[in-house]
């Protein structure tokens, strides 16, 4: 492999990381909102949130991407390739992250909240000082898991015209007739990226534990 081709692989790995990272963050923000709506006692908040989760968790990501890229322009909404990719990944991961967070919030012991009521903490204070910290700690491993899943699922976004790591490996394997080499390099790069993500996750977990002690 020439340095130039390896540079192209690294560039494509960068595209994979950047698009995945942006999608995971946007997905986390949407996930928070959806989770909040989902646990709300108001029906007109919880029902759409439940529909959102069941749709984006129930339809394959590949189909979602094709729908966003090919269907929305039919309604006059032009969606460029990168936007379609980020939208598809974000909405998909938001559905999973909303459920992860919901699990976290449900696990906050009721007794803690009753005690908080007793000492007169407002709902916002309870959220900031009790519920959110506990839920975040509980869902951190699931969030890291989800981040790794999205990094790997991002190989699908080539269907909406974004060249990422897998697509670049396919292209270069085809032009050099050396598929083994390029797929091995792609696999290695994914592995390194995901090690870093997992390592960052463990570090964050340890820091949260220390903070608590």
């Amino acid at each position: 492999m020439t340095p130039r081709l390896f540079e192209l692989m690294l560039w494509a790995a960068g595209a994979t990381v950047l698009i995945s990272a942006v999608s995971i963050l946007i997905g986390l923000a949407i996930g928070f909102l959806v989770c909040a709506a989902r646990v709300s006692r108001t029906r007109w908040l919880s029902t759409p949130a439940a529909v959102f989760v069941s749709f984006f968790r129930g339809v394959p990501l590949l189909v979602q991407l094709l729908l966003i890229y090919n269907l929305l322009p039919g309604f006059g909404l032009y969606v460029p390739s990168v936007v379609a990719a980020i939208a598809g990944l974000s909405l998909c991961t938001a559905a999973y992250q909303a459920e992860n967070l919901r699990g976290g919030f449900m696990s906050v012991p009721k007794g803690l909240l009753e005690a908080a009521d007793m000492v007169g903490l407002s709902p916002w204070q309870q959220m900031r000082r009790i519920r959110a910290p506990i839920a975040l700690r509980l869902t951190l491993p699931a969030l890291i898991n989800e981040a790794i899943l999205i990094l790997k699922a991002s190989s699908l976004i080539s269907v909406v015209g974004v060249v990422e790591l897998t697509r670049m490996a396919q292209n270069l394997a085809a032009s050099t007739y050396r598929p083994l080499l390029f797929y091995s390099v792609a696999g290695g790069l994914y592995l390194v990226i995901n090690w870093l993500v997992a390592g960052g996750g463990s570090l964050a977990e340890r820091m949260l534990k220390k903070e608590r002690a």
Partner: peptide
């Protein structure tokens, strides 16, 4: 140039991509 897998090319043309 917009690069896509071939089975995605014609649908995206119709979508005006």
């Amino acid at each position: 140039w917009v690069e896509l897998p071939w089975d995605g090319v014609l649908p995206a043309l119709e979508a005006g991509q």
